[in-house]
């Protein structure tokens, strides 16, 4: 009996092995990553999967403090290559699951905070309205030459009052 069980063992193991992939079908589907431009990334895929945040963080400080804007580990270049237009020409936003970053981050349930400030699409994909508005730009100042300092003109409207045009 025991001998026959030993004979069955490879079969049992095989059954477990075969059952494995079918079991995976019930789990959360692996993310389908959007196609990227170019043949390969700046680092091997397995390195990027684990350490992309380290590269971006390192380059972040180099850029902010040193003005080093080389493209290899630049955040903007990540977006340029990895956020590509859909078939209809529209670009996915990070709030949508087919965005490169969002697809994996929603799968891994890791929140990214990059895009509250940074653009989630290449510059060419961002449509902006005209900036022809009259921005709060004119304010009434008086220079008191005796005091040699700038002072807001006291027109009763307070510091944040808009004086557009009235300065003219």
């Amino acid at each position: 009996m025991i001998r026959s069980m030993f004979k069955l063992l490879p079969l049992l193991l095989g059954l477990v092995f075969i059952a494995g992939p079918s079991y995976a079908g019930d789990r959360v589907k692996l993310p389908e990553l959007a196609p990227a431009k170019g043949d390969k990334c700046v680092e091997p895929t397995d390195v990027m999967r684990r350490d992309h945040m380290e590269f971006i963080l390192h380059q972040r400080d180099e850029t902010v403090y040193g003005g080093i804007r080389t493209s290899k580990h630049s955040f903007a270049e990540c977006i340029n290559c990895h956020v590509t237009p859909r078939a209809d020409g529209s670009y996915p936003r990070v709030s949508e699951k087919d965005h490169f970053c969002a697809s994996c981050h929603s799968y891994a349930s890791v929140k990214v905070d990059c895009f509250s400030c940074h653009a989630d699409r290449p510059e060419k994909a961002i449509k902006r309205g005209a900036h022809g508005h009259s921005h709060a730009s004119f304010k009434n100042f008086d220079v008191d030459t005796a005091q040699h300092r700038l002072a807001y003109k006291d027109d009763g409207s307070g510091i944040t009052a808009q004086a557009e045009g009235s300065a003219q």
Partner: peptide, 20 residues
């Protein structure tokens, strides 16, 4: 422009200074 100029960002603004 948010439509609320009190809180809009100003990186540069024009001033008119006057010698009283």
């Amino acid at each position: 422009d948010t439509g609320r100029p009190e809180t809009d960002a100003q990186w540069i603004r024009k001033l008119t200074v006057k010698d009283r």
